[in-house]
Amino acid sequence: MVQRKIPMRKDIVTGEMKPKKELVRVVKNKQNEVSIDPTGKKAGRGAYIFLDVAIAKLAKKKRTFDKAFGLKIADEFYDELIAYVDHQVERAKLFGNEK
């Protein structure tokens, strides 16, 4: 059986390389709209964050995505990101990592 290569991406908050499946992609499109990309396939500039609520809260505190995308991003986006990460973490506990 051939060992498949695991795609790695850098967590924008901690700077650590992690497997892509353990991260969530945040994307900025051409209209400068920032959104969470659960599929990982939306068009635009992407940045990744580890699926950990503490890291998502740190991203809000440091305004990490503001710096990464060069935009002023509303607090509501960070709150949505924290809720999404929390949901994904709880879902993984219930169902395991079946992605």
Rank of each mutant, 00 (worst) to 15 (best):
K21C: 09
A83T: 06
D86P: 00
K42F: 11
K41N: 09
A43M: 11
V2R: 13
S35Q: 10
I12D: 08
K28Y: 02
D66M: 02
V27L: 03
A54N: 13
K18S: 02
P38L: 13
Y84A: 09
L23H: 06
K30W: 12
T64Y: 03
F50A: 14
A43Y: 09
T64A: 15
P38Q: 03
V24S: 04
K57V: 04
K93F: 07
A54E: 14
D75E: 14
E33I: 13
L81N: 05
Q3H: 03
V27T: 12
A83R: 10
A54D: 14
K30Y: 13
Q88K: 15
K72R: 11
D75G: 12
I82N: 05
F77L: 15
K61Q: 15
T14L: 12
I73F: 04
Y78H: 05
R91G: 06
P38I: 09
G15I: 10
R9M: 02
I12Q: 06
L81G: 02
M17P: 00
V34A: 04
T64G: 08
D37R: 06
F77A: 12
T39H: 06
R4V: 09
A43G: 15
I49Y: 08
V2D: 12
Y78F: 04
A68W: 01
K62F: 00
Q31P: 00
F77K: 11
N32G: 01
M1P: 02
L81D: 03
N29I: 01
N32V: 00
L94G: 01
M17D: 07
E76G: 01
L58A: 15
Q88W: 02
I36S: 06
V89M: 10
T64F: 03
N32R: 08
F95E: 15
R4D: 04
D86Y: 00
I6A: 08
R25W: 10
D37G: 04
Y84V: 01
Q31R: 14
D11P: 07
K10N: 05
I36W: 05
L71E: 05
R4Q: 09
H87M: 12
I12F: 03
M1W: 09
I55N: 06
G70E: 08
I49A: 10
D66N: 15
A56Y: 03
V26E: 06
